[in-house]
Simulated scan of single mutants.
Amino acid sequence: MIKNILIISSNFTGHGHKSITESLREIFEKHNDINVHVVDGFSLGGTTLLKIGKSYGPITRSSENLWQLIWNVSSIRPALVNEFIELIIKDNFLQLLKDINPDLILSVHPNFNGSVINILENHKIKIPFITLIADLVSIYPLWADPRADYIISPTQEAKDKCVEYGVSEENIKVLGFPVRSKFYRDIQDSQEPINYNADIPLKCLIMSGGEGVGNMRKIAEILLDNFNCTVSIVAGRNTRLRNKLEQSLVERYGDKVKIYGFMENIQDLMLSSDIAFTRGSPNVMMEAIACNLPLVITGALPGQEEENPEFAEKYKLGVVCENIKNIQDTISDLLANNAEKLNQIRSSQRSYSNPNVAKNIVDFILSLD
């Protein structure tokens, strides 16, 4: 009987792992007999590993080339990454197991799959271990350790990648990408088409994941100079970017533009917007889709996000515009014929979106008694 569940997540490598964990906890909390303990995997490695985890934001904000190098090296030698993390977290992890005595371990971060399984095997500890992949298409080999009892995949594409890495199809469950319930727009409201009227401002939202990367200022200028619109920009944890945007845009465009930092209630902005501009962050994409908010994807981090723009276009969840010079033409095309293409995206998102993903994942986990 599964009563105690340990979730290994991350608080500092973007916000997606934490958001996924919260979406599952919402459902677990409905089961009064289930105890869930969440730990930041990087905290198990003390100061050294926490510094590595916290470096994700600065690196992805300022040096995509360095991030790609880290990704490539880790992908070539995943066993070395596992052994390094195993060595650093072993003592604290074993103590954690003694303290909470989990009946099942769920990992939502790639760095704590093979490393934790190594520790369990080396100490002959038998606890079911499940991996929940937090990326959509371009997954790390670290996600796909064939020794996991099950791997929960958000997409068929990620499942196919796991099979390439040597995971048995029988051990992979495609259950979708879990999103917190507060992001799901009332389906009745979302079915109303956007009737674009040049006299009514188009509500634009520009964001780029929790770390706030991307050329937000230029996108905002193109929108404000060429369309009747308002622009909300979420700079995430990037305080320096937020200050620069406030200085360059608010003075010029006044109340047509608003700049925000990291937000716990980002769903309010998503639900009140007509269109969103973002990089291919899987969590941001899936939350926008849950809000039935059409996407214009302006780029992607190398590595885990590389194929996400193509994924969005494949399922007609948004359009890709990686060259900022084409933003004006892209938006004009979406708004043509009374926003016909914008409304087609909204319709495709409603067909794709599934508000029961988190529940289905929890139900599957609890069925493993």
Rank of each mutant, 00 (worst) to 15 (best):
F129K: 08
F129Y: 14
F129N: 10
I130S: 00
I130C: 04
I130Y: 09
L132A: 10
I133S: 01
I133P: 03
A134Y: 07
D135T: 03
D135C: 06
D135N: 09
L136K: 08
V137F: 08
S138T: 15
I139H: 02
P141W: 05
L142G: 06
L142H: 12
W143A: 00
A144R: 02
A144Q: 00
D145M: 00
P146S: 15
R147I: 10
A148G: 04
D149L: 13
Y150D: 10
Y150Q: 09
I151D: 01
P154V: 00
P154F: 05
T155E: 02
T155I: 04
T155A: 03
K159G: 09
K161R: 13
K161L: 13
C162F: 01
E164V: 07
E164I: 08
Y165K: 08
G166M: 00
S168L: 11
E169S: 13
E170S: 14
N171F: 12
I172W: 05
L175R: 09
F177Y: 15
R180T: 10
R180A: 12
R185P: 02
I187V: 15
S190K: 02
Y196V: 08
Y196A: 05
N197T: 05
N197V: 00
D199Q: 15
D199P: 00
I200Q: 14
L202S: 11
L202H: 07
L202D: 09
L202Y: 10
K203E: 14
L205T: 04
I206Q: 04
M207I: 15
S208F: 03
G209H: 01
V213G: 05
G214L: 12
G214E: 07
G214D: 07
N215W: 00
M216N: 00
K218D: 15
I219P: 01
A220F: 09
A220E: 03
D225S: 14
D225Q: 14
F227P: 11
F227V: 10
C229R: 10
T230V: 03
T230Q: 05
V231H: 05
V231K: 04
S232I: 07
S232D: 15
I233S: 04
I233A: 04
V234E: 08
V234N: 02
R237H: 13
R237M: 12
R240C: 08
R240G: 12
R240D: 06
L241Y: 02
L241R: 01
R242E: 13
R242M: 14
N243E: 14
N243I: 10
K244L: 11
L245N: 01
E246Y: 02
S248A: 11
L249E: 08
R252T: 10
Y253A: 08
D255E: 15
K256P: 00
V257N: 03
K258A: 06
K258F: 06
K258V: 02
I259H: 11
I259A: 11
F262S: 11
F262C: 09
E264Y: 11
E264D: 15
N265V: 12
N265C: 05
Q267A: 12
D268M: 11
M270P: 11
L271W: 10
L271Y: 05
L271C: 06
D274C: 08
D274I: 03
